[in-house]
Design a protein around this nucleic acid. Structure first.
Lengths: 203, 203, 203, 203
DNA sequence: AATGAATGAGGATTCATTCAT
DNA sequence: AATGAATGAATCCTCATTCAT
């Protein structure tokens, strides 16, 4: 494949990508047919196969794009903040903002995890994020800010809490991002029994 | 539907249920055909439809069964423990044990969340679990054991962290349950920065 | 097949016959499954095949029964009436009464005409009726009561008019039998332009 | 559905329509599978569903087409004939000619009457024809040409006689149209006992 | 006589993909 | 680049019939 695309071609391609992401998210990957995608764009079926190898290929690309985009957002938010725990907080807040804006992508990665051929890519993507977090955690451990434990496991716990909150309150419900972010950060840093919540609210 | 089943019938039914759960988990719901299910059991296609209305119906039943079974396990573990935080800990540990034994069911609920017709049931099931946890949290708040916050949000955070750890370490990897449970409980109760990990380890 | 049936056996058999006729009439032959027939009777599937060779066999029997029953009714009504035209009138009136009582059987013969394997039987049955009518007509021609024409064609015309009226007014609508019978007899004897309708009404 | 079809597309569509009508008529609607239709045309299965929503949809379309086509033929034959009885005669003769040419469609409407989902359309179609006839009859009554009676019932009687003759002599047998038409017209206008047949024959 | 269970061919329909234009 | 048309394997499901008990 790998076509050289004109400007117009690139736009069309993106158009398909977006529309497909929306439909996959709404109805699921399998229940969404290529026909529906192209019909909803008012174009012929050939267009799809001009820009993409296959339905699977398209899905993979959506997956790749979203994980890159999320990471870009996180890194922009973190900048060169020196405090590792603060970096984690910034990362969480940035993630939640991104999740809010791309709430429909939730379903996609959720689904991707359930089928072998997609799960692989997904885990690779996640590994990058976990790696980032793990680095911050190690630094914080060295600084004595958090107790010595398996930092990767902590990273997973953190990510699980954040994502589930996002999924529940930004996707299913419609809570303001800040409220969710405060809870997430508070919980991640101090757990259920940790420090005074008041301390957590001064953003 | 609603057939009167003989002993043999009930066994066959369960057999299909189990096999289907396994296959759905392994390959995904859509990629697993009814034909594959019955073939792998060495029975005719009609057998499937003798016991189940449809593929969808079967899946729904698997979903229902697993959420009930998990809850039963949690409640058995909690017993009449008076301390609400301890109840939460016991719940987490019990869940992780159940997850270990039924690791293949992970994918099923993961998938279920991505398609409207299944998501509904799933959320209903989850609501029950969240409710249980929320009750414990409220009690702990009344006791002043944890700071005043939206207990439902906390419940979600807790559940997210636990499930993600389970998914990662009990399903993808093969960590001993106790290790994962210790991290989970520690993280949930104290967050990243909370009390000394030593305190957490005395099960 | 040809089983020797006990009294109870004969009743069961008739029960199936009746129920099947009703269901076939209501929903059509093909859309009615053997399962539906036995389920609606609350018996197992084996019962059906105990009494009938096959679904097709059952249908054929219903067909045969109804044509015999109708003929019996016609002959009873005609008795030994000497006037051939009067015999025709009596036959029409008797038929309409029978049709009213067995309106559901309309669909069955209607359907039977459309599939080769059933059409044969149907035509044989019809041939008997046409034969009866033809005999009356010939006699009337000999008497000079009706003009010389192909009596069999007339018989078909007569039968067509009568059946269609029956179908329309006794099955779809719910007209009193006598009203329909008067119109039918009048039309058959005199056509559109024939003698004064008053003359037709003295039953 | 509602596709924009190219010339080629329209031809293919008609081809399927024709072939299906033939097969349905020959073997019956249910016993004819979509596979048989497409195989007999030497095309893939998908073609069918490119042009028709479903087998049912196709059948409905055949039904609609034939009733329209028959009516067109009747109206063309009647033209602006002022005499209402003559109009009826012309209508009968035109119908019989159409029936001869489309004898295979007999079975289709016959069958359609026996299943709820099709019966509705059929009755609607018939209602139009009955309406036409009823109008002529009313006019003839006003003119005193036929006795006062329910004109709609007469219309049904007339239609029943004509159709049954057609079915019997143009489909099952192979009588010349004119012969059947003469009998039909004679019977309809004068019944069994009506005016001299000689009068009827001078077309 | 009767039941629940099982069979498996067959049927309608879908859909990713390819092709001719 | 793009379209309508076509393919045909695959899918879910139905159902007449048979079987073991």
């Amino acid at each position: 494949m790998k076509r050289k695309l004109t400007q117009r071609g690139r736009e069309r391609r993106q158009q398909i990508l977006d529309q497909a992401a929306r439909l996959f998210a709404e109805r699921g990957y399998h229940p969404t047919s290529v026909a529906e995608i192209v019909d909803s764009l008012g174009v012929g079926k050939g267009v799809f196969y001009w820009y993409f190898e296959s339905k699977e290929d398209l899905f993979l690309e959506i997956l790749a794009f979203s994980s890159h985009d999320l990471r870009r957002r996180q890194q922009a938010a973190i900048g060169d903040e020196p405090d590792p725990l603060r970096r984690i907080e910034l990362g969480i807040r940035a993630s939640l903002q991104w999740f809010r804006q791309h709430r429909h992508l939730f379903n996609l990665s959720q689904f991707a995890a359930t089928e072998g051929r997609f799960a692989a890519v997904l885990h690779q993507n996640d590994a990058v994020a976990i790696d980032d977090i793990t680095r911050h955690l190690k630094e914080a451990m060295v600084d004595g800010r958090i107790a010595d434990q398996d930092p990767t496991m902590l990273a997973h716990a953190l990510m699980g809490a954040t994502r589930h909150l996002a999924r529940t309150y930004l996707y299913a419900a419609d809570e303001p991002v800040e409220v969710v972010a405060d809870v997430a950060v508070g919980f991640v840093l101090h757990g259920l029994t940790g420090g005074p919540p008041a301390a957590r609210l001064n953003r």
